[in-house]
Design a protein around this nucleic acid. Structure first.
Lengths: 114, 114
DNA sequence: TTGTAGAACATCGCTACCCGAGGTACCTTG
DNA sequence: CAAGGTACCTCGGGTAGCGATGTTCTACAA
């Protein structure tokens, strides 16, 4: 029963998807690289079993587009993902939702533990 | 396919539990009242089908304790929930986790959409 | 040449939990 | 007594994160 890990696992739900879009909004990325990047961020530890299905979902919904490209440093080819205009719109909408949600949670937590 | 509602539904996961603890940290509450209070908060719309199982879980884990009390304005008896010391500790720990998680998401979203 | 290691992709089954729908009991009011 | 609001609860479905596992490709060492 690893408490903190489980708590974060639930917190990531819904947000992780848009964090990936946020990273892709800056530059193209391939899946394995995203796993490592997210793993380095506080509270965003993920594995491939999470990210690959997530990326498939994003592509299926047209929020990202992918292109295969050879690795520049050996190894198997990489699948690069780029955000689409639909993805940009989704990210924009989520950012607004997130702001409201975040403020609500902050208010409840801070007023609850004075 | 109601987009915003689904997004929020996922976001609430994990956080809702501690928002309830946060509300209970201020004063005792009964379930139905919590449903109405949360419904009035931005991004926290919930139903009884969400809240009652959640309260049962909290009690099972010893983070809240309940006492039946008669209604002071007619109607069926109410089950009042109070936060326990274990609940306070859990809330405290989560608040720290939440702070880190929130900042990480904020950073990614803001840097992604300049 | 073989084999070992790492990079990079993918899928499967498990689990947690949010949610709508439905159900029961209590009390007041007409 | 019937109707409606209050307040409790349960069930089934769906979604998404996660560990385990598998596959392919390249580089490099023995």
């Amino acid at each position: 029963m690893v408490v903190a890990a489980d708590v974060l696992s639930q917190l990531r739900r819904g947000a992780l998807e848009y964090c990936v879009l946020g990273l892709l909004a800056r530059e193209e990325r391939y899946g394995f690289d995203l796993v490592r990047s997210l793993g380095a961020l506080d509270g965003m530890v993920t594995g491939e079993g999470t990210l690959y299905p997530l990326l498939s979902r994003l592509q299926k919904d047209g929020r990202v587009a992918s292109t295969w490209r050879e690795s520049d440093s050996g190894g198997p080819p990489r699948k690069y993902y780029a955000i689409t205009s639909k993805g940009h719109r989704a990210l924009h909408d989520f950012t607004a939702e997130w702001g409201r949600f975040r403020d609500t949670v902050d208010t409840i937590l801070l007023e609850g533990t004075p």
